[in-house]
């Protein structure tokens, strides 16, 4: 993947090869980024919008990518920021308190025609939605995407220690919710 990424980056910075390289980039990362975004915004239509915004931002700022981090980390960071920006704009529009998006996301989850999970999975998603935003993102990245703490640290610009603590608290809260709703 590292070798492919290097080729993609080199081609993206070459104006003559940019279009083809971008097509390759989208093909390589669209699924991983989609699922990451989908777990944050919960609804397919919103995830589709945010994914498009993410790739547009990548297109616009490819010249500013200084290769200090890996391409994958950079893309994940943009996708995470775009998702958070999207939720914040929804919160503003519906006059919700800035720290509470869980109701809006719960509506998103229950009204999404593409949710295919059973009751247990729905319960798990509801438990995840009750977490604070940062803990929710950390939990999803660790539990579902199996990302390493080092990678998460680069993406979220947070220390490994703080991420471990966030994941620990999140898992405990989810466990409590699962027990209380049994």
């Amino acid at each position: 993947m590292q070798g492919t990424d290097k080729n993609i980056i080199a081609d993206l910075k070459d104006v003559n090869k940019r279009d083809l390289a971008f097509h390759q980039l989208v093909g390589t990362y669209q699924e991983r980024l989609y699922w990451h975004i989908r777990k944050i915004v919960m609804n397919h239509d919103d995830a589709d919008d945010v994914l498009q915004n993410t790739f547009l931002k990548v297109w616009r700022s490819i010249d500013n990518f200084r290769e200090e981090s890996s391409l994958f980390t950079w893309l994940y960071r943009i996708a995470t920021n775009e998702s958070i920006t999207f939720i914040n704009s929804k919160k503003k529009k519906s006059f919700m308190p800035m720290n509470d998006a869980s109701e809006f996301l719960m509506d998103n989850l229950t009204s999404d025609p593409y949710f295919e999970g059973d009751e247990i999975q729905l319960k798990l998603q509801k438990a995840i939605l009750r977490l604070p935003e940062k803990q929710r993102i950390v939990f999803n990245m660790k539990y579902f995407d199996d990302l390493k703490y080092d990678e998460m640290s680069e993406i979220l610009d947070t220390s490994v220690g703080a991420l471990k603590a966030s994941y620990h608290h999140a898992a405990k809260k989810i466990e409590e919710y699962l027990k209380s709703t049994d």
Binding site: Y34, H44, Q52, D112, Q121
Partner: peptide, 23 residues
């Protein structure tokens, strides 16, 4: 650890082409 979410049919096949149009 199952992914409970789904997408419309051929979503990822079409996405790349849609993205190209956007670009």
């Amino acid at each position: 650890k199952e992914n409970p979410f789904g997408t419309p049919k051929h979503y990822f096949d079409d996405f790349s082409a849609r993205m190209q149009m956007q670009i």
